[in-house]
């Protein structure tokens, strides 16, 4: 079966891979590129575990075909830390115990980054609605919301 050649920037590096046209971007990232940080919880865009940034917008990687990624700039959870230094969201998730099993964490981190990039001082309600597309079955969301609030404070320099 002929495969399509895709060129993207993933986590700062130009990355090329081959894919079938019907393959989801999530499967291509996991199987072809070897980045398994984004998770498949549903494959239908309902759980957010595969949330990544595509050209600075948060997307479910399972809802994009891999060829749609051609020419885009992608950030996955693997690209969130900067030269070994954790992003404030990662640090606050750790310190605030905002994960239990951790399967949803990559998606929450990327969705929360997309929120804070646009809105550095969100209310609790704004955070809750911005993260409503990300399912967590372990935490009841309490500590996740608090971690995002704390990261926002730190990123504002407070």
């Amino acid at each position: 079966m002929p495969r399509t050649h895709i060129t993207t920037v993933i986590n700062g590096d130009e990355t090329e891979f081959l894919t079938e046209d019907s393959t989801s971007l999530l499967n291509a990232l996991r199987d072809e590129v070897g980045l398994t940080g984004a998770k498949e919880g549903c494959g239908t865009g309902d759980c957010g575990a595969c949330s990544i940034l595509v050209d600075d917008r948060v997307n479910c990687a399972c809802l994009m075909f891999a060829p749609e990624a051609d020419g885009t700039v992608i950030v996955t959870v693997e690209g969130l830390a900067d030269s070994g230094e954790l992003h404030p969201l990662q640090q606050c998730f750790l310190e605030g115990a905002a994960l239990q099993c951790g399967i949803c964490t990559p998606g929450f981190l990327m969705a929360a980054k997309a929120l804070l990039d646009k809105n550095p001082d969100p209310t609790e309600t704004e955070i809750r609605y911005a993260l409503a597309g990300n399912l967590c079955r372990c935490t009841g969301y309490d500590k996740i919301i608090r971690a995002v609030q704390e990261a926002a404070r730190e990123m504002r320099g407070q």
């Binding site: 398994t36 984004a38 693997e78 990662q90 998730f93 994960l99 951790g102």
Partner: peptide, 8 residues
Amino acid sequence: GVEKVTGK
């Protein structure tokens, strides 16, 4: 924790 917030 670190492995779980970095996707590793």
